[in-house]
Design a protein around this nucleic acid. Structure first.
Length: 590
RNA sequence: CGGGGCGUAGCUCAGCUUGGUAGAGCGCUCGGUUUGGGACCGAGAGGCCGCAGGUUCGAAUCCUGUCGCCCCGACCA
């Protein structure tokens, strides 16, 4: 099929839209692929829809290839199923809610676990019907606190979501792996670089979960990776605990004056001037044990304190803390919290005091005390002596104090060793483009999805849920496939196969171009034909570069002699061709 | 929710300090000249100056309030 630019519903913009910051947003608006309707909500123009459908086609092919079947749910759903699983409340402000004329509550679905589960429950009741994988490509709605970066985080976005249904754990593993493999093939076909990271299972429940992250500066997630292939979300990163060390040769702890040292930096400075290390090496922040007081708010609203002890060169990573203490909410303790616990000497908190243990469930305060894995048995620390202006030096874990356990809340720093022994990690930014998730029986249990097994016994189905953000992927591809002049689509998702640009005012140019377009159509190519007669060549070239069809044919001054140019959008290279040969040359490209 | 910025034509912006009846470039329409890197001439269409109050003879401009949008952060199954 050929589309004439003179007829196409599009208007390219000469200037960058003022509200677009990131490249994909800027270029997709400028090139006439999308238009903003509301914050995080976009209308799709013909060019944008074409790319979107191409991405969807690849996704469908790979899912159908292993037997997943497409269905389609409404975005508008009643409250009840979400009430049953508790997500009507859990989502809070995160979803769009609406009321019908009778006062019934509805929502615009943020994801569809509940209704998929119910549909299967509706139709199936035997193990013989399983395994089953269903998917849909559907618009999702989430009332994001702050939509941003155009399509990268919208409030309406297209997502492919699949759900697998099995009656055994082993079956779930197979379904999970099928999706995971399909996702790898999809991202490979889309030419999208990705790393698979272990993800936190979070509030969704369930066990195994992995995210596909596309490394990009505009990414919203920080992940860690080692050169040898380890990759994980920061939340899922684990710290290797050093082996216990004997503390028999260690000197006893002593309390020393450290006036005006409520911060680690001040403490290190004073320690080095007033109490230098006997071995001549300078004290560093890593020699100190920092005890941070956190307040946990449980689901029932109750609030209690916990103290975490970490090496002084580390900060608490709140995201890691949220995971470590889930489902409780975590925040730094407030002044009010300290007032309620006079046993805590702010700035000089430590597990030990001359009068006995201060931190820990069995201590004087009764406050739970958890330590970083690096605070292992036999390690010695400078830490607060629970007296203003004094710290205890050489306090040895396992000898002088103990904790109620270890906790992973310290921030991960570049150079930390990967837990699989593959060497130091680096921190990188990534955008989540896919997520595979073993839900387990949470939803099936809540909604009563059971089948009879081989023994005639009723068993609860176990499920997986798998998502790919279609519109986000489109943006991510645009993000990594553009230059200063415009978009450069990979061939298999470009809105057209070939962009034919006719330049000049001679009728013969347009006659040659028309014939070429017809020949390309006959060869099965999708053609965008810039047939605009009164538009100057500069505008046409500029638009071609903006729109980003990877293969461009210029029919211009050589047309009368049967000469055209093949223009590679990505390399910028222009190759002269006889018009008679160009259809074959294009066929050879793909 | 915290911080910052901005609302004037379809787009990008000027005008606001110092109040006097609305501007430019691009885009759009008509006519003509142009046609290998965003051409030119002429004639046009197009604005509730975000909204509401107030001050004033007079408000895009000053004051108050309000709504919205963008960016950073928090948040983000």
């Amino acid at each position: 099929m050929a589309t004439r630019l003179s007829q196409l519903f599009v208007r390219t913009l000469r200037e960058d839209p003022v509200d677009a910051e990131v490249a994909s947003h800027r270029l997709l608006v400028r090139a006439g692929y999308i238009r903003r309707q509301a914050p995080g909500v976009f209308a799709w123009l013909p060019l944008g829809l074409r790319v979107r459908r191409n991405i969807e086609r690849i996704i469908r092919e790979e899912l159908e290839a292993f037997g997943a079947q497409e269905v389609h749910f409404p975005a508008l759903l009643p409250r009840e199923p979400y009430e049953v699983t508790g997500r009507w409340a859990e989502y809070g402000d995160g979803i769009f809610r609406l009321t019908d004329r009778k006062g019934g509550d509805y929502l615009l679905a943020p994801t569809h676990e509940e209704v998929f589960t119910l549909l299967v429950k509706d139709l199936y009741s035997s193990y013989k019907d399983l395994p089953l994988s269903l998917y849909q490509i559907q618009d999702k709605y989430r009332d994001e606190a702050r939509p941003r970066a155009g399509l990268l985080r919208g409030r309406e976005f297209s997502m492919k979501d699949s759900y697998s249904f099995d009656y055994t754990d082993a079956g779930l593993d197979v379904s999970y792996q099928q999706h995971r493999d399909a996702y790898e093939r999809i991202f490979q076909r889309l030419g999208l670089e990705y790393v698979i990271v272990k993800a936190d299972a979070g509030a969704m429940g369930g066990s195994k979960s992995e995210e596909f992250l596309h490394p990009t500066a505009v990414g919203e997630d920080t992940f860690v990776r080692s050169a040898a292939g380890y990759a994980a979300n920061v939340e899922a990163f684990t710290t290797e605990a050093p082996a216990p060390r004997s503390f028999e040769a260690l000197t006893p702890a002593e309390v020393l004056d450290t006036p005006d040292t409520p911060t680690i930096a001040a403490l290190v400075a004073v320690a080095n001037t007033k109490h230098p290390r006997p071995d001549g090496r300078a004290w560093t922040a890593g020699d100190t044990l920092k005890n941070i007081v956190l307040a946990l708010t449980a689901l029932d609203g109750s609030r209690k304190l916990v103290v975490v002890g970490l090496p002084g060169d580390r900060e608490v990573d709140l995201k890691r803390a949220e995971v470590a203490f889930a489902p409780s909410d975590v925040e730094a303790a407030t002044e009010a919290d300290f007032l309620k616990h006079p046993g805590l000497v702010k700035g000089y908190i430590g597990p030990w005091s001359a009068n006995g243990a201060v931190l820990g469930e069995k201590s004087a305060t009764g406050i739970r005390f958890l330590t970083d894995p690096r605070v292992s048995e036999g390690t010695g620390w400078i830490t607060g002596a629970n007296v203003h202006g004094a710290h205890v030096f050489g306090l040895v874990a396992g000898r002088d104090f103990s904790s109620d356990g270890t906790v992973e809340v310290a921030d991960v720093l570049a150079g930390d060793p990967a837990p699989d022994g593959s060497g130091p990690v680096e921190l990188a930014r990534g955008m989540e483009i896919g997520h595979v998730f073993q839900l387990g029986r949470k939803y099936a249990e809540a909604l009563g999805l059971k089948v009879l097994d081989e023994n005639g016994k009723l068993v609860t189905v176990t499920m997986g849920s798998y998502g790919i953000g279609v519109t986000r992927i489109l943006a991510v591809i645009a993000e990594s496939n553009h230059d200063e002049k415009g978009l450069i689509w990979p061939k298999n998702i470009a809105p057209f196969d070939v962009h034919v640009v006719a330049t000049g005012k001679d009728d013969v140019v347009y006659e040659v171009a028309e014939t070429l377009v017809t020949d390309l159509e006959s060869a099965g190519r999708d053609v965008l034909f810039d047939d605009r007669f009164k538009v100057s060549p500069g505008v046409k070239f500029g638009d071609a570069e903006l729109i980003g069809v990877p293969v461009i044919v210029i029919v211009g001054r050589g047309a009368a002699d049967g000469q055209v140019e093949l223009w590679d959008r990505r390399t910028g290279e222009r190759t002269p061709f006889a018009v008679a040969d160009v259809v074959a040359a294009i066929a050879a490209l793909s």
